[in-house]
Design a protein around this nucleic acid. Structure first.
Lengths: 341, 341
DNA sequence: TCCGTCAACCAAATCGATTTCAATTTGGTT
DNA sequence: AACCAAATTGAAATCGATTTGGTTGACGGA
C-alpha cells in the first residue's frame, strides 16, 4: 500500500496524510485521528527507504564490532537495545577491519559518507584516536564510549577506570600487599592506560616502587589470565595480590593459583573488574570475587540515550559523563599472610 | 557529490555512469575504467538510500536480539560479521520484545513490512514457531538457525543436538554411570527438546529408566548450573554424572561439586556443550572439561553465507544443513567410582 | 459588504539513484 | 558505397515518500 493509493482511499491528498502521520500541526485533529486509524486498519506504513531518501535520516545507530567478538560487546548492545526498543531506531553492526590500519579509517569514512547511519558509537578509543578526528571532520554525529586525549572536542561516556583501579590497588596496599601484579587489557586503548595510571598512582602515593615486571597487558581471556598469573606465581619473589581487567582474567588467575596449591583470599588476593554479566557473577565464584563493578549494559542503555539526545539537537560538546565505579569487597581479598622471601 | 554532477564532470550521462559502476556489460571497458577511477578520485559514491528506494534492496540482514543478551549471540554475530565484511551488507540488530507474546509477532511483522532488511535470521526456534509461518506468509526471505517442526517449508542450519547429547550420554553410560543428570536449556526451544530426546534415547537404548527428577531446564548461567547441581548432589541417591547445556552451566556444576568436596572426573563426571568461545575454553578448565563442541562463530559465518545465497536466488527450500558435533573427551569424565547407596 | 486572518488542505517539486526504451556510432559484408 | 547488426550511449520515467508554496473557505471585524 503506497501513500498515493492510501490517500485516495481516504479522499485526502498525500500531503495531508503524510502530515497527519508525522504529527504536523496544520492538520485537524479529526482528520488526523481518522488517518491514523485507517492506516492501522489498511496496514499502511511509509516506505522506509523513501522516507530516508527524502529526509536524509536513516533511523539507525552504527556500532563497529571488533573481530575479537568480545563478550562485553553483547552486553553493551543488549543495553542499547533496551533503550532503543521504544524508539524507531535500530542498531547497525558493522564488522571491523583491523584496528590501527588504513582499512579501519576507510571503513569509518565509507560509513559516514554512505548515509547508512545517523550516528555512530566509537568503542575502546585510543589516546590519540584518529577515528574521532575523522568523524568530527566529516560531521557525523557520534559518541565515544571511553575517552581519548585527542584535541578534537567529542562527547563521551566513560567509567572511572583510573579511580577504580586506584581504589582497588590502595585497598590491597592497606591489606599489607606490596607486590601487586597488574593484568591489564590490551595495550593501546585509553581505558587500559587509565587503569595503568590508577595502579601506579596508588603505589606511588603509598611510597611503593612500581615494578614494571609485574605489569602485563593482553586480551581478556581465561587463558591469558592463567598464563600470566602462573608465570608470576612461579617467580621466587612472587606477587601476593592481583588486579585484573576482567572476570575471565580472574577465572584464569584462580585456576593458576589453585594449580599451585595457593589459596585465593589468603595466599593470593585478587580484585578484578566486573562488567556485570547475567551469566557469570563475581558473587558466585569460589571464593567470591572482590571486584570493581560497573554495568556494561547500563552503559549501553545510556549511550543509546545520549546519542538520541544528540540527534534531537542537544549539543554534543557538553556531553561528558564519567561514571563512578563501585568497589565491592568479597572473599578473594585478604591481608598478606606471610612475607615472601 | 551526486550522480548528475559526477556524470557531467566526466562528460557522460548518468545512465552510463550508473551502469559502469554497477558492472553492466553494455558499457565499454575503457569507459568503465575511467568512470571507476574518477569515482575514486572525486570521491563519488551512490547515495545508499536512493539506491535502496529504487532497487528495493536494503543491504542489511536482520537479527532479533533476545533481551537476555546471551553470550552466544555475540559469537554468532561475530561470525556473521566475518562473512559480511567483504559484502556490502550489514547486520541490523533488532531489540526483541517478550517472546511468545503478541508483541514479538508484531515486531516481526513490522520488520518484514517496513523493508528495513532484505532477510532475517530466526534464532532459537520453537517446535511450532509462528515466526516462521509469518515470515513465510509475508514472503520475507529468512533462514532459521536451529529447526522447527512447523509444517511450513523453511531453510535452516542446525547442529545435531540430539546426536551430540546421545553420544555424550552414551559415553557416560559406557563408563558405568546410570544416574545421569541433565541440565538443559530453557524449555520451549527446539534445541532443548532435541537434547532432551538425545538424552532419553541414549538411556532407553541401554535399558536405563529415565528419572524425570534428574531433568531440569533453565538459562545458561553459572548461577543456575550451581543451584541445580548442588540440589542434585545433596540428594541421597545423587547422580554420578551431568550433561549440561553450556560452559557457564559447567562452571556452576564444578563449583557445586567442589563446594561439597567432590572431585570432578572421579566422584562426578561432567560433559557440557561448548559453543567455542575465545575467552573461555573447555581445555582450560580444571579439570579440563569433556564437551560436545560446535562453533557458534562458524555457524554465524555460514548462516550469513546462506542468507546471501538465498538473496542471490538460491532456492531456500533445499537449504537444510545439519552440522555434526564433535565429542571431545577430557578429564571431567571418568568411570563411576563407587556405587551410591 | 468587504477584507484580512487563520485553519485546513492540496499540487507539484524534490530527494538521488536505476532502468526502459530509443538513439547513435562502429565495424563488417556484399 | 550501402546496408545491417552489434556495441555504446542517453533521455526520461520511475521508486515512494516529504515539503514548499500555494489555494480554498469560514469567520470576525470594520
Amino acid at each position: 500500500m503506497k501513500l498515493k493509493e492510501f490517500a485516495k482511499q481516504l479522499g485526502l491528498s498525500p500531503t495531508t496524510v503524510s502530515r497527519a502521520l508525522s504529527g504536523y500541526p496544520e492538520v485537524s485533529e479529526v482528520t488526523r485521528a481518522r488517518v491514523v486509524q485507517e492506516a492501522v486498519r489498511l496496514g499502511y506504513r511509509p516506505n522506509v527507504n523513501a522516507v530516508r531518501l527524502k529526509t536524509g535520516r536513516v533511523g539507525a545507530i552504527g556500532v563497529v564490532m571488533g573481530r575479537a567478538g568480545e563478550f562485553h560487546f553483547a552486553e553493551f548492545m543488549a543495553g542499547m537495545a533496551e533503550r532503543l526498543i521504544t524508539e524507531d531506531t535500530d542498531i547497525l553492526v558493522i564488522p571491523m577491519a583491523n584496528p590501527e590500519s588504513d582499512a579501519e579509517m576507510q571503513l569509518y569514512r565509507r560509513l559516514a559518507e554512505s548515509q547508512r547511519v545517523d550516528a555512530m558509537i566509537v568503542h575502546s578509543p585510543r589516546p590519540n584516536d584518529q577515528r574521532i578526528a575523522l568523524l568530527h571532520e566529516l560531521g557525523m554525529p557520534f559518541l565515544v564510549h571511553g575517552r581519548s586525549d585527542i584535541d578534537v572536542p567529542h562527547p563521551w561516556l566513560d567509567i572511572d577506570n583510573e579511580g577504580a583501579v586506584r581504589r582497588a590497588t590502595s585497598h590491597l596496599i592497606d591489606l599489607g600487599h606490596t607486590r601487586i601484579a597488574m593484568i591489564n587489557g590490551r595495550q593501546g586503548a585509553t581505558y587500559a592506560l587509565h587503569r595503568d595510571i590508577g595502579y601506579r598512582s596508588a603505589l606511588q602515593s603509598h611510597g611503593i616502587e612500581v615494578d614494571p615486571q609485574l605489569i602485563v597487558n593482553g586480551n581478556f581471556t581465561d587463558e591469558l589470565g592463567f598464563r600470566f598469573a602462573r608465570s608470576f606465581l612461579e617467580q621466587p619473589k612472587r606477587p601476593t595480590a592481583f588486579v585484573a581487567g576482567s572476570m575471565m582474567t580472574a577465572l584464569g588467575i584462580y585456576r593458576a593459583a589453585r594449580s599451585l596449591g595457593l589459596q585465593i583470599g589468603s595466599d593470593v588476593s585478587v580484585i578484578a573488574h566486573d562488567d556485570v554479566f547475567p551469566y557469570l557473577t563475581a558473587d558466585n565464584m569460589v571464593p567470591s570475587l572482590s571486584a570493581t563493578r560497573s554495568s556494561m549494559r547500563a552503559a549501553g542503555t545510556r549511550c543509546a540515550d545520549l546519542v538520541l539526545q544528540i540527534l534531537a539537537g542537544r549539543s554534543p560538546l557538553e556531553i561528558h559523563e564519567l561514571w563512578p565505579v563501585e568497589l565491592i569487597l568479597r572473599e578473594s581479598t585478604g591481608p598478606v599472610r606471610a612475607l615472601q622471601a
